[in-house]
Design a protein around this nucleic acid. Sequence first.
DNA 1: CTGTTAGCGCCTTCAT
DNA 2: ATGAAGGCGCTAACAG
Lengths: 348, 348
Amino acid sequence: MNSRYLAPDPVTGDTATISDVARLAGVSISTVSRVVNGTAPVSGAVMARVEAAMQTLHYVPRAAARNLATRRAHTLGLMLAVSSGDFFGPLLAGVEGVAVEHGYDLLISTAGRNGPQTELPRSLGRHNTDGVLVSAGSLHETALRALHATETPLVLLHASAPDGLNIPCVTIENKAAARAAVEHLIEAHGRRRVVLLRGPDLLADSYWRELGYRQAHTRHGLDVDPALCVPGDFNHEVAERSVARLLAEGVPFDGIFTGDDDAAVGALRALHAAGVRVPEDVAVVGFDDQRLAAALTPPLTTVRAPTEEVGAEAARQLIALIERRPVQPVTLLPTTLVHRRSCGCLGV
Amino acid sequence: MNSRYLAPDPVTGDTATISDVARLAGVSISTVSRVVNGTAPVSGAVMARVEAAMQTLHYVPRAAARNLATRRAHTLGLMLAVSSGDFFGPLLAGVEGVAVEHGYDLLISTAGRNGPQTELPRSLGRHNTDGVLVSAGSLHETALRALHATETPLVLLHASAPDGLNIPCVTIENKAAARAAVEHLIEAHGRRRVVLLRGPDLLADSYWRELGYRQAHTRHGLDVDPALCVPGDFNHEVAERSVARLLAEGVPFDGIFTGDDDAAVGALRALHAAGVRVPEDVAVVGFDDQRLAAALTPPLTTVRAPTEEVGAEAARQLIALIERRPVQPVTLLPTTLVHRRSCGCLGV
DNA sequence: CTGTTAGCGCCTTCAT
DNA sequence: ATGAAGGCGCTAACAG
């Protein structure tokens, strides 16, 4: 190539470069560059010729060359924790939609099952990426601090920034949602002794949801009985054990806020095994509205989070950061409570 | 930079290049390149000096420059259909693990909810990517043909190549798995009239699973009653309607192969609503072993697919293709039947 | 509006 | 075993 007028040879896989186009169109490479990027005005006639040339040559700019010349990667990094379960898809869809809309590609990396990485994978490193979206549990705090120190544009997903780090984050209104869920049990269904299945210690989600649980009590002049706050870990096995123990010990309760839907599975199972009726004896609310929520017996009342929008908003923030526009330090997306049978609302 | 001996300025975000390292170590850039890539032997002493220099400068090679020089992207493209539900995570984990292991990055793109794309997104195009993994339902056949014509290395996920296209594909043993599931109903539980909830027409999965269903019958000298083959669409609503209709029409049956777990949700719901006991009156098997399978009432007997391994194997094939090593035209990964209550096996 | 000319950072022969 | 020099394809001043 580069020395012939021919179309790219489909056999060698050789493809046209900007100079091929320029030559065919009878202009300079700068002009081609201009019509490709709309960087500067180009006369109609010339533009037409160039576009024709690009067509016949099947010209596609080579990203590596552009990236090298502009010293930008035109790429967003997304650092994920594998466990992301169900909302993986929507999250990705949200992020990707916004990314392409703004002309960015998406480079992905997942943390192994050995927990948060202590190092940013090279693929998402400084030069491969203009910025990185870091989802909760994917990157160890020290790695995050190191990254932040290099001034890499960063946005946190479903997590808040470690002390002292000024990193924008986008997540859902955990506290308000948890409060609303528990208040629903208290107000609409007259429950007074609601169990809290606590989430994993390190997760920000756990912290805020617990706070919401407490706030619901405070607002209604209720005390929180420490005996009702047991481990749930956002995990059905842990949850099942906790609820079974409560039952075995004869601790009285008439409601459960399970922290997340997975834990709800365990809670329902323990309740069912003990012959406790849901929602008559114990009303249950979950959190997340995963696909399985509606399929449980009884169908689970739970909090629906706008996962796709979380991804989209995070991407928007990151791009703003990259392009040096003002950024929201923390954005909390609103949730809605989905009423199903397990709380006592629908049907019986 | 490029003219000082200093470490990269953390404030400007300026970072070291290969020449900075060379200068600090007192060698040429070629030598640095050699130690970075292990391209040619380098004396121990020199190597040590270079490595020290890289350390103190926090040197990281710039991907764009390498890609430009080598004319390779060192990147795999992954084209996904958004709906991928539950097995999104494992699949990604599989692909990514193999990719990084071989020194490739992962660029992702998802098909919008408007069905298969008719064009490969630019981000996964020829120069941004050394090859592309195309998952079922993400790319329209014409796009696939066009892509294939450009000689882009391609591997299909959960789909087989369109007629005449010689594209390797990796998926699971749909036919054998479906056959085993249905045979289990026939052999272990004595069912003779098993309903088939057919999957979506265009999906390869649907086709093979239906074939397996038929094969199970043939092998046992049973006829397939066309009245028992109804739409399921891998969708709980469609499935619920179909099963409800069968019940209403009084068509007799004693088992259901639901095609996938989502459809199983609908089937169980319809059965429950009609007061039909599972598994006593009707035994049910699903397919996929999604997370909700174990949480259903009763817990669902279903086929477990090695999703992560599918991703990993696909990545291996693609890399082989890229590096011009021999490739498996089609690889079928084995599944296992997970016995739970809905078929009549465990508990009651 | 259009062309010329430097690089961007790295790999890769080709000498030595 | 090491260095020198020429690209890879494109963008971005800088002239006209």
